[in-house]
Design a protein around this nucleic acid. Structure first.
Length: 944
RNA sequence: GGGUGGUUAGCUCAGUUGGGAGAGCGACGGCCUUACAAGCCGUAGGUCACAGGUUCGACCCCUGUACCACCCACCA
């Protein structure tokens, strides 16, 4: 960093030379501020509308690698379309994230020893808003660091006023259309958060558990307690709420018991033995205890058999007063322990077996979810889902990659009603009121309800205490953000939106619900394409998680971080010292010197290079360094171009005569191919292919070859002024074009350089963001130039190869002799000798005529042409023999393979003629080459 | 129990209608060659998971197997 101070970079901004080395930290933030303050991100013009909705991140969240990836993809699409001249909107906003946000604030209160109930609802909500104001800017600030270019002027929040309107409107209309109802049924209850959650918010993982076999004695009248049957259960504590025991109706063992009763141990309640097909006679004992109020299957069975439902828990999963006094107020797992002991003491514990089972846990709280009988609001999803299925089947919405449609269909076809009420305080309050009798009225406000239903002042109304599931409001995101329920211009212009970029993990939570709700309220799709990307994992394919200590923060990759703060970050709040030690060790091993500051452009380019077809992304920090180097490469190439072109005519005004060299024509032709490849990559969401095309063009073609080919032209008197002008013109124009081509991927470095280069290329405009996106021009495809330069590259590479394997110093200028029958070769050689001499560092290059005396030489082949490097004083005979043998070996293998193939009559008879001809030609070429090398070997060996 | 994706160089991954296996990083050797040592030049490295099949010809198409990852499902 020593000689690349920020001072030198600010000089650059004033028009001095670019800083010697690429320093992203010096250019990125100032550039972003300029873009934002000048309002460049807002939609403009009257081109085709193109609109992307950001999946709203949690308002109080922070940016992780998944966001980084996703926003980078969106920004690339947005910048591409903006440059294409489309009327481009990237709608930004944040989500109130009901449970997540409320939990954070409750935790803060907890630190002060308070609960939300100490504050009361109103004060608590105030507190959440405060927290939102305080920390809510973080995620959007971080988004800016990524160079994201959404229209900040229309930023939305899922609990802003407009959204409140939209949410109410949707709720009321769905209610009036009988698509929302309220009902008492078994829901997934989170006893830590004390709220219902939807099926999707329950994660079932296999865990080690036990299967307790309990003896249930029959009633005395039926032969108990001597006669008993054995039930197997994973949750003994629920037995307090049992209201039946079920057996399979065809189970011969228990035929005589059906209809008899059991005296429930510890409780004394008489419960019937019933028969039901659901029971699998093979599992356990074939007898199942039935707890209708605390198990989804038992609930259904309870309904089929009209069993009583006894709710034994309170909302924190402690036992209530429906159980014997001994157990009241016990926590569920304590009660389990107690009951097992009591069963054992009573001689009623048959056995305990280890058992693997799926344990349902809340995705937020992590505690075991309890099926719990409560009143909740539901969306009747079937009719909505039917339409949503048809729409995707009909192709009006396309998933990329397509296989995610299967996932969507399978979920949609088996969809359950959606529980939308949450017993939280932070969220959209349900617009429903109850009178003293519990009769429900739905409307925009109490006044509205009173007016609509003619309710006088004597009737007391109270609003429903619950709020809506967060996804209920984010389901309206595409049209809610554009002004709905009002029919705004924005809505008309940008809806349906163009592409949704999202992770597969929220296809059900969000994508499916947006499709259902949007179709219902807009009669149109929310978006035409869903681009589904994978999860960002660590370099070994492990999920990034706090407990694994492998989390990378995108901001740290941009700004860099020293080892100590990185360690601190990764182990903060770690309760287990063992885990902490392990994470420290592994972090030290991986990031001995911390993480370098790579800058946003490098980070973005890494994401693109890893974004292939919908699979998960393994993020390797090693790769970002390579792409930071790539940015540096562009930077230095630009420096070189400026050095040679600034202050000299470059054809920017189009008035002077210029002439293009072969190299110029070649790089222009290759540029057309690159433009086509990059555009193809973006249009097909193959950002990996697009970035690959850019990378190899810039580095291999433009820098490694073209800039080198320019040097003889610019530095030698052998080229005319017209040729020099043509080369300068091409240098700046290709660079200027490639900057525009790369801008959606590398927004900062391209803008920074473009500001300097554009004038030389005759381009104007205040920002590269509004410069036109390059389009391939077929008239500039120059196959001849490409073939000629390929030939030249082959000759040069062959000479370099000889130099390399013979250990000849790069500084030694070599005399080279060429020999061949082809006049093409001879012409190409004489036309390009300047290039050849410079790039291969030759003393001379001579075309041999028949009969010329040939000294002992090292030999290489470029096509048919022999390239000879005289050995005198340079080349070791043994080494050259070895080199030739290697080449000869390769040729022999190929010849063997090809003659085998061509010797096969079936191949010759069946394969297309063109294929056969091609193979024959290759064989002939190889044989010629082989003969030449063998000749050389013979000559050399005589020297040994 | 159903379903999806994956298995290609030491690592991370491309491979377009079936016709001579590629990139980046890493490794090795040589270079401070006047844009760039964050660089330049060159080299090595693969039974394309396994087994069958179709075909003149298979990384590619078909069948099966193994392993990895993920999604869905009510087995007490």
């Amino acid at each position: 960093m020593s000689d690349n101070t920020s001072a030198s970079n600010s000089d650059a901004a004033k028009g001095g030379s670019l800083a010697k080395t690429y320093q992203p930290a010096d250019i990125e933030q100032p550039r972003y501020q300029e873009w934002e303050s000048k309002g460049y991100f807002a939609p403009r013009g009257d081109g085709d509308p193109f609109c992307v909705m950001i999946p709203p991140p949690n308002v109080t969240g922070y940016l992780h690698m998944g966001h980084g990836f996703q926003e980078s993809i969106m920004d690339c699409l947005i910048r591409y379309h903006r440059m294409k001249g489309d009327q481009t909107l990237w709608q930004v906003g944040t989500d109130h994230a009901g449970i997540a946000t409320q939990m954070v604030v409750e935790r803060l209160l907890g630190a002060e020893g308070k609960t939300r109930h100490d504050l009361g609802r109103e004060k608590f909500i105030e507190k959440v808003w405060e927290w939102k104001e305080h920390s809510g800017g973080q995620i959007t600030r971080q988004l800016r660091r990524l160079g994201a270019s959404p229209d900040w002027s229309t930023e939305r929040f899922t609990m802003d006023e407009g959204f409140y309107e939209a949410v109410q409107e949707v709720f009321i209309r769905l209610y009036e259309d009988d698509l929302i109802y309220r009902g008492k049924r078994l829901v997934n209850w989170d006893p830590a958060l004390k709220t219902a959650v939807s099926d999707l918010e329950v994660i079932s993982e296999e865990e080690d558990g036990k299967l307790w076999h309990l003896r249930y004695p029959l009633s005395e009248a039926d032969g108990g307690p001597e006669r008993y049957l054995i039930v197997a259960t994973t949750r003994p504590e629920t037995m307090l709420g049992d209201t039946a025991v079920a057996v399979n109706p065809n189970d011969e063992r228990y035929q005589d018991l059906i209809g008899k009763t059991i005296t429930l141990p510890m409780v004394g309640r008489e419960i019937p033995i019933i028969a039901d097909d659901y029971v699998d006679p093979e599992f356990g004992t074939g007898c199942v205890k039935i707890t209708p109020a605390h198990d989804f299957n038992d609930y259904e069975m309870g309904q089929r058999h009209s069993l009583p439902m006894i709710n034994i828990f309170d909302d924190t999963a402690h036992l209530n007063d429906q159980v014997p006094e001994k157990y009241q107020s016990m926590e569920r797992f304590a009660a389990r322990k107690q009951l097992v002991e009591d069963f054992e003491a009573a001689g009623l514990l048959e056995k305990i077996e280890p058992h693997k089972l799926k344990v349902p846990r809340g995705d937020r709280s992590g505690v075991v979810i309890e099926p719990y009988l409560t009143d909740q609001w539901y969306v009747r999803t079937q009719p909505l889902a039917d339409e949503a299925i048809k729409t995707v089947e009909g192709g009006d919405i396309q998933f990329v990659p397509k296989q995610y449609e299967n996932m969507y269909f399978s979920w949609m076809r088996d969809i359950q009603d959606w529980c939308i009420s949450r017993q939280l305080w932070w969220g959209h309050r349900i617009p429903a009121w109850y009178d003293a009798d519990g009769k429900v009225y739905v409307g925009k406000s109490e006044a509205d309800v009173r007016a609509k239903h003619n309710l006088g002042g004597d009737i007391t109304l109270s609003q429903d205490e619950d709020v809506l599931d967060t996804w209920f409001s984010s389901g309206l995101w595409t049209f809610g953000t554009l002004g709905w329920p009002e029919e705004t211009e924005r809505l008309k212009t940008f809806h349906p939106t163009s592409v949704l970029v999202t992770g597969f993990d929220i296809i059900f939570f969000w994508v499916a619900r947006m499709i259902m709700l949007t179709l219902y309220f807009r009669k149109e799709v929310p978006f035409k394409t869903v681009y589904v990307h994978g999860l960002v994992r660590d370099s070994h394919g492990q999920k990034m998680s706090k407990s694994k200590g492998n989390v990378l923060d995108p901001i740290d990759l941009i700004d860099g971080i020293e080892l100590p703060p990185l360690l601190e970050k990764r182990t903060a709040g770690m309760m287990q010292p063992q885990l902490k030690a392990k994470i420290e060790k592994q972090t030290k091993a991986e990031f001995e010197d911390g993480i370098a500051a790579y800058g946003t452009d490098a980070l973005r380019f890494t994401y693109y290079s890893l974004a292939s077809t919908g699979r998960d992304i393994n993020f390797d920090v090693g790769r970002i360094e390579g792409f930071r180097n790539f940015c540096n490469k562009i930077w230095n190439a630009a420096n070189y171009v400026l050095m040679n072109c600034e202050g000299k005519p470059c054809g920017e005004n189009g008035e002077s005569e210029y002439q293009l060299t072969l190299a110029d024509r070649w790089i222009i032709a290759r540029l057309q191919q690159t433009e086509a490849a990059v555009i193809e990559g973006i249009e097909t969401y193959r950002f990996d292919l697009a970035s690959q095309a850019l990378y190899s063009f810039v580095w291999q073609e433009y820098c490694s070859w073209y800039l080198e080919l320019c040097k003889p032209v610019l530095n030698s008197d052998d080229y005319s002024a017209e040729q020099k002008l043509g080369t300068r013109r091409t240098l700046v124009r290709v660079l200027e074009t490639v900057l525009r081509l790369a801008h959606p991927f590398l927004p900062y470095v391209t803008e920074e350089i473009w500001q300097r280069v554009a004038p030389l290329a005759g381009a104007s405009g205040e920002t590269i963001m509004y410069a036109p996106y390059p389009q391939a021009d077929a008239s500039k495809a120059d196959e001849q130039a490409i073939a000629d330069i390929e030939w030249l590259k082959e000759v040069i590479t062959t000479i370099r190869n000889i130099r390399g394997s013979m250990n000849i110093s790069p500084a030694t200028k070599l005399p080279v002799l060429c020999k061949g029958e082809s006049t093409d070769d001879q012409q190409r050689l004489s036309a390009n000798s300047q290039f050849l001499i410079k790039l291969a560092n030759l003393e001379s290059v001579t075309w041999l005529s028949a009969g010329d005396e040939i000294p002992p030489c090292a030999t290489g082949l470029a096509g048919d042409m022999e390239i000879l490097v005289p050995m005198a004083g340079l080349i070791d005979v043994t080494a050259e023999m070895a080199r030739l043998d290697k080449e000869i070996g390769k040729l022999n293998n190929e010849i063997k393979r090809l003659s085998g193939k061509l010797g096969n009559d079936k191949f010759v008879a069946n394969a297309p003629e063109a294929v056969v001809a091609k193979e024959r030609e290759k064989l002939a070429d190889y044989q010629t080459s082989l003969a030449k090398l063998n000749d050389q070997k013979a000559k050399i060996s005589s020297l040994a």
